[in-house]
């Protein structure tokens, strides 16, 4: 067994190269664990309608709406679960939902 950090382990990794019992030899690395593949619907950011009120940001349970210099950016789809809460709170219809794959 190899002393892999989590980022070196992916769904192609052979059993010989995994750590015993899935032990993780690093901390603060949950961002590297991509959980967006659970999503069945995907939020779409309509930038022209967005007023940057930032009401959507704190309600996201997955911190999947990145903010840089006081402005929200497009969704972090590696971690967004498509729960729809952000679209519900947006007063300006700046978030739409499409079925995954459409």
């Amino acid at each position: 067994m190899k002393d892999n950090l989590m980022k070196n382990i992916n769904p192609e990794t052979k059993w010989q190269d995994l750590t015993p019992g899935g032990n993780i030899y690093a901390s603060g690395n949950s961002a590297e664990f991509k959980t967006g593949d659970w999503r069945t619907v995907t939020p779409k950011f309509i930038e022209e309608k967005c007023k940057q009120c930032l009401l959507c940001v704190p309600v996201c349970p997955d911190c999947a709406i990145p903010v840089v210099d006081g402005k929200r950016l497009d969704f972090d789809l590696d971690h967004c679960k498509g729960c729809g809460i952000c679209a519900k709170v947006c007063p300006f219809d700046a978030i739409e939902f499409v079925k995954e794959g459409e």
């Binding site: 067994m1 382990i9 769904p11 990794t13 059993w15 995994l18 019992g21 899935g22």
Partner: peptide, 10 residues
């Protein structure tokens, strides 16, 4: 599910 079986193999 992508990892569980490999851990059982080990």
């Amino acid at each position: 599910p992508q990892y569980y079986m490999e851990h059982k193999k080990a």
